[in-house]
Design a protein around this nucleic acid. Structure first.
Lengths: 149, 149
DNA sequence: CTAGGTGCAAAAGGTTTGCGGTTAA
DNA sequence: TTAACCGCAAACCTTTTGCACCTAG
């Protein structure tokens, strides 16, 4: 009795999409997966520079676009800030903390869906959503930081 | 028995915030309120140019920022597209149609809140949310448009 | 061998800012 | 009178693109 395969692996996904295995693509992917955070393209660029000094920022952007297209990472946008990239593929939202600037994943309560609270017009077909919150993360809400920015 | 005043008027809000009544500010506000749609800054700039030909795009941006800050309009961002401005101040989300490019307001089902489906960490303090959907509006879902892109 | 990828530099696109002049209050 | 506001142009910042070279398959 086969378990539902949770998520395709990097190798599998790259192959299935007829893409090549390049060091840069892998390095960008690993840099995002290693730390489970929400870096910008420039932050990833800096991380990757350590292991592959010749990589360019344009390549980081290109890789991230490709990885997003084939579903290996999520691109998240919020209030015109730099895009951030997320290794968590499950359905979730993000909390952008005004205190520390950090981003926290917000999971869906079990069995709930956006349709449960939003009144979509009949026949509307939703393919994707972009949901983010601005506020204070638990840490900053309890101990406000010394007024950054 | 006083009714709950629904929303402060333009005049009231401008006064309370110690702002000036300028023709440009009013023209930008009116251009947004007249048509209940979701124009970009440039679209509003064009509309306003009709009535106040000397206005500059920078002023339109500045006015929209001020109006957003004092709560008279909402600024909506989606997938790094140009910001759009929304005259509807009630709590709602937006559906960006891949067919016609239009934006539809999505109201909250009565008595529901984001907290009902999202599992926020204890103590997190939410001040604002940015919720948008990508998909097809009812019209385009029924009669797909001729592939605009 | 060759299409897909990379690195570089330049361009694009949307928004913001600096500054001198204008105007609401 | 004077701080807020305006128009203009330049600056900014993030992301994309063109192009010559490189390399995985």
């Amino acid at each position: 009795m086969a378990k539902k395969p949770p998520l395709k692996s990097y190798d599998e996904t790259i192959s299935e999409n007829g893409l090549r295995f390049t060091d840069q693509r892998r390095a960008v992917y690993d840099a995002l997966m290693d730390q489970q955070d929400h870096p910008t393209a420039v932050e990833l660029f800096i991380r990757v520079k350590g292991k592959a000094p010749s990589i360019s920022l344009a390549t980081v952007y290109n890789c991230l676009e490709t990885l997003t297209e084939c579903g290996l990472v999520q691109t998240i946008n919020h209030e015109r800030e730099s895009a951030r990239y997320c290794p968590n593929l499950s359905e979730h939202a993000h909390l952008f903390c005004s205190g520390c600037g950090g981003v926290t994943d917000i999971p869906l309560r079990s069995k709930k869906r956006a349709q449960d609270i939003w009144e979509f017009p009949d026949n509307a077909a939703i393919t994707h959503h972009e949901i983010s919150f601005r506020g204070l993360c638990p840490k900053c809400a309890v101990t406000p930081p010394p007024l950054t920015k």
